[in-house]
Design a protein around this nucleic acid. Sequence first.
DNA 1: CCACGTTCTGCACATGTGTGCAAGTAGCTT
DNA 2: AAGCTACTTGCACACATGTGCAGAACGTGG
Lengths: 325, 325
Amino acid sequence: MATSIFEHPPASERVRDALRAAHLYYMQDLTMEAIAAELHTSRSSVSRLISYAREAGLVEIQVKTPAERISTALQRIQDKHHVTVHVVPVPDSANEIDRLERVGMSAARILNQYFDSNMTMGIAWGSTMSAVSRHLQPKVTHNSQIVQLNGAANTRTTGIVYASEIMSRFGAAYGAYVQQFPVPAFFDDPATKQVLWRERSIRRVLDIQKRMDVALFGLGTPLSEVPGHVYTSGYLDESDFQSLTASNVVGDVATVFYRADGSSSDVPMNLRSSGPPLEQLARVSRRVCVVSGKSRMPALRGALAAKLITDLIVDEATLHGLLDD
Amino acid sequence: MATSIFEHPPASERVRDALRAAHLYYMQDLTMEAIAAELHTSRSSVSRLISYAREAGLVEIQVKTPAERISTALQRIQDKHHVTVHVVPVPDSANEIDRLERVGMSAARILNQYFDSNMTMGIAWGSTMSAVSRHLQPKVTHNSQIVQLNGAANTRTTGIVYASEIMSRFGAAYGAYVQQFPVPAFFDDPATKQVLWRERSIRRVLDIQKRMDVALFGLGTPLSEVPGHVYTSGYLDESDFQSLTASNVVGDVATVFYRADGSSSDVPMNLRSSGPPLEQLARVSRRVCVVSGKSRMPALRGALAAKLITDLIVDEATLHGLLDD
DNA sequence: CCACGTTCTGCACATGTGTGCAAGTAGCTT
DNA sequence: AAGCTACTTGCACACATGTGCAGAACGTGG
C-alpha cells in the first residue's frame, strides 16, 4: 500500500484510466455511462477522466480541409509564396480583441501538429504570441526545448515578466526546456550588441536559435492605429520611429524590421535589434506565422515577400483582404 | 438562383458550413448555441452539421499513448518483432462477438492514420475484415485504390456478394477505386491457377497487389472452436483439413497458410490458394493485422514469427496471452 | 400554376455531459 | 491514535447535445 516512493502508481494509474476511458469514448463510441460500468466507477469520474485526457494532450482532434475545398484564389496565394494557409473563421462583427483571442486559440491547436519530441521551437513575444500562449493545448514531448528569439528588456522594464510568462506557458504545455534570452529588445548602440554577441553565454542561445526546427511569431506593424506591443510599450522612442519611417518599414518579426518588398538589409534599427536576422530565420524548416486583424495586412504582405512564412494562421477577414491583390 | 447545373452550390455549401462549424466547435471551443448565432441558423442544425463533419471525415480524432506509458513487456514484443501494437481495451466479460465488433471499430479508426491519397491498400476478407468494414470512418482521398488480396468463390457460392460488400465499403469510405479479384479462394488443381495467373486480366490485379502500400488482414485459424469464415463456409473439404493438419498449419493470411515457426513453403494447399505468397506480402511497407480473441493466439504467434505484421491491432486479453511468452 | 415528393428547418423533448458540493479517503504530522 | 490537509468520489442538478416530428421550402413534372 505504501508506494509513493515510486513516481508510477499514484499519477500514472490516472493516466492509464484516462487513456482507457478516452479510447472507449472516442474510438469505440461508448457513452460515459457505459464506460463507467466497465471501469467500475461513476459516470462523473469518467467525465473527469476524459476531460483530463483532453487537457493532458492524450487526445488529438483536428479539423482537416479537403484539398478540393480550397478556393482557387487562396490556392494561388499558397503556390506563389510556398505557404500553407490555415483560415480561422471569425465573424466580421468580432472586435480586434475577440479576433486575436480566437486566432490565438486556433493557432495553439494547429501548432500541436508541428511540434513534437526532440524539437526546438523558437518563439517571439508580443500581443499575438501572448494570445497563443494562453490557449496552448498540452502535449507530451521529450527532449524538446523552447528558445526565446529576441530580448524583451526596454527602457522602462526588463520585460522579463511579460516575455518569460509567455515562454514558460509554452514550456509547461509541452514539457519542454525553456531557454530565455535575457537581453534588451533593442540596444542603444550596435557596438554593444556586437560585443555581447561574443559572450559565450549569449552565443549558446544564438546557437540554439540557429538549430531550431520551428519558429513561431506574430507580425509587428508600425502603421496601425492598434500597433503591436513593441510599438507602444517603451521599446521605441521618437527618433526610432523616424528611423523606421525613413527606412520604409512595414512590419517586423521578432523586432527585426522589413520593407514592403521583404528586404531588411540597410534598416539601421536592425543593427540594434536582438532578434535573428531574417535571412537566418528563413533557413528554419518550419516558420509559423500568426496574424489577426486587417491592420497587419501590409506587414503580412511584406513577410510573404520576404519568404519568412511556411505556415500562415490568419483570420478570415484579413485573408480576404489579401486575396484581393 | 438557378445554379444546380454546377456540382458546387448544393452539396458543397453544406461542406463549407460543416467545416466552419467543426472548426468553431473543436478548435475554438464554442458551444453549438454560439455557433448557431454566427451561422444564423438553429442550434439543432449546427448539431447536424457537426455530426455530418464527423461522418464525412472532416474531423479526425485520435488517442495517443505516450511512449513512456507502454509496459516493458509490450515494449519487448514490439522490439522483437518490429511491430507497433495498438491495444484495444475490451472488458474481459465481453463475448467473442462484442470483442470482434469493438476491435473492428478501433481498427477502422486507426486505419485512417495509415491510408491516404495516392495509396493502394490490399485487403483480405473474413469475419474480422467484415467487422472492420462495418465501422470504417470515411476520409476524403484522391487517386487511391482498394485491391482484393485473394479470391472468394467456393464450391457453394461465388462469394462475390460477401467479399464485394466488404470491398465496396472500403471503397465508399475512402472514395477509392475498388479492384475486385474474381477467382476462387482455392483452386482444385494448382495447374489451373498457374494457367489463370498468366491471363492478362488476372496479372493486372496481381500487379496492383505487388505495388500496394498497405495490406490489411485478419488471421485465420484452423485450430479454434470458433474458426474463421474460411474454415466453416464450404471453402475447405475434409481432405483439405487433413492436408493442413499434416503440414502443421497454425493459421492463414488471405488464405495462405503458415506454420508456428512462420514458414509457409511446402504447404501443399498454398499452391492452390489465390492469396499472395507470404514472402511477397512481407515486402509491403505497411502490413496491418487485426486480431480479436484468444483463439487466434497461435495464429498470431505464427504471423509474428513470419514477420508478416508491421502494425498489430489486438484486444487487450489476447495481447496479455501473448505477453506471457 | 398546381400537385407531388423530397429535403431542410426549428421546436420540444430525450439523452448525454459538466460541475458544485458534501462526504469520504489517504497520506502525513504531532 | 488523533488531527490535519489535500485529494478523490458520487450525487444532484445545470447545462449541452441529439433526434422525432410537423411544417416550410424547394425542386420536379404534370
